[in-house]
């Protein structure tokens, strides 16, 4: 069973807007957490500092009900600068690497520090939205996925359905919360608070189509500078969630940043799930009948 979710703009008619999103270029993230702070302030989110975690400079651990932007910090021992196996051409490009902003290394001790600001992916095939029994989760005219706080009854289905572990229940509130891509600001023609606050433009906001072509150019640039592990994550429609409103440029595999390497919308398997459920129901009927009528005499 496939759900035709790409048609949402039609339901808004004349009010529909181009699909808006985030391109998070982690190669220029400096880990300042301005996005986390701006998000909290604008959306009036309760505090979520976990204290000292020991996980580098990370003190919010993961996305959750009270963390809608999460900056990940990864420390790796890698040869600084150009990666092993780079060609002479790539090696010579290293001279320009600093100008291109790919030099996130600590020179000298071979320590590489990766930083990345994570957020809800605003999936095209959003499992959270599809499983939500109340309709609290909905698709906006910008193509984003938002929870209506006046409808959510805290059933928790979306929490288990999201393949990225984005949603969570807020304690002493009972409802689930997540990034709204600043729906209120978008309606007023403003960019989301995190993108506005990001001092390096690691978080870029705009029309998804435009952001995607920008990301391709950036990937080319990094790879020609010898960043062989540089990769785009969710940057087109060919993936398990049918594309995402928030996608990323990473310098290592997604799982290193806490992102699943092959996320899939669970409702893609809805056909086999309901099929097995119906078959099991029929088997139950047969079993009951056999027990009642199958006796001797």
């Amino acid at each position: 069973m496939t759900l035709d979710v790409r048609q949402w703009s039609a339901t808004y008619g004349a009010d529909s807007k181009p699909r808006m999103g985030f391109f998070t270029d982690t190669s220029i993230c400096i880990g300042c957490k301005a996005c986390e702070v701006a998000c909290k302030e604008w959306n009036q989110i309760p505090t979520s500092i976990q204290g000292f975690t020991g996980n580098s400079y990370d003190n919010t651990i993961a996305l959750g009900a009270n963390t809608w932007r999460h900056v990940a910090f990864v420390e790796q021992r890698l040869p600084a600068g150009v990666e092993e196996g780079a060609s002479p051409v790539e090696a010579s490009a290293r001279a320009q690497a600093i100008n291109w902003g790919v030099q996130t290394y600590q020179e000298g001790d071979g320590l590489r520090w990766l930083m990345a600001s994570d957020v809800c992916k605003h999936c095209t095939e959003a499992a959270c939205l599809e499983v939500c029994p109340t309709g609290a989760l909905f698709r906006t005219e910008f193509g984003t996925v938002v929870v209506q706080e006046d409808v959510c009854n805290g059933c928790g289905y979306c929490v288990a359905a999201c393949p990225f572990g984005v949603l969570d229940q807020r304690e002493d509130d009972g409802r689930v919360w997540k990034c709204t891509l600043c729906y209120d600001r978008l309606k007023d023609g403003l960019e989301p608070a995190c993108a506005k606050a990001c001092p390096t433009d690691s978080i870029q906001f705009g029309e998804l189509a435009e952001l995607r072509s920008r990301a391709e150019r950036r990937l080319d640039q990094l790879q020609s500078a010898g960043q062989r592990r540089a990769q785009l994550y969710l940057a087109d429609d060919e993936n398990g969630v049918g594309g995402a409103g928030a996608f990323f440029l990473l310098l290592d595999d997604p799982e290193v940043y806490g992102l699943p390497p092959d996320p899939v919308d669970t409702t893609r398997d809805l056909g086999s799930i309901w099929g097995a459920t119906a078959a099991a129901g029929a088997a139950l009927a047969l079993g009951l009948a056999a027990a009642v009528f199958g006796g001797r005499g």
């Binding site: 996980n55 320590l111 290193v256």
Partner: peptide, 28 residues
């Protein structure tokens, strides 16, 4: 602390992860 992101396992082999943090949320 230097974290190479290895420790979680699958089929007995180490799997790279983010500080061994879960990827999914615990069902509530």
């Amino acid at each position: 602390s230097v974290d190479d992101g290895r420790a979680a396992t699958w089929e007995g082999n180490p799997v790279r992860s983010y500080h061994e943090q879960p990827v999914l949320k615990k069902p509530i």
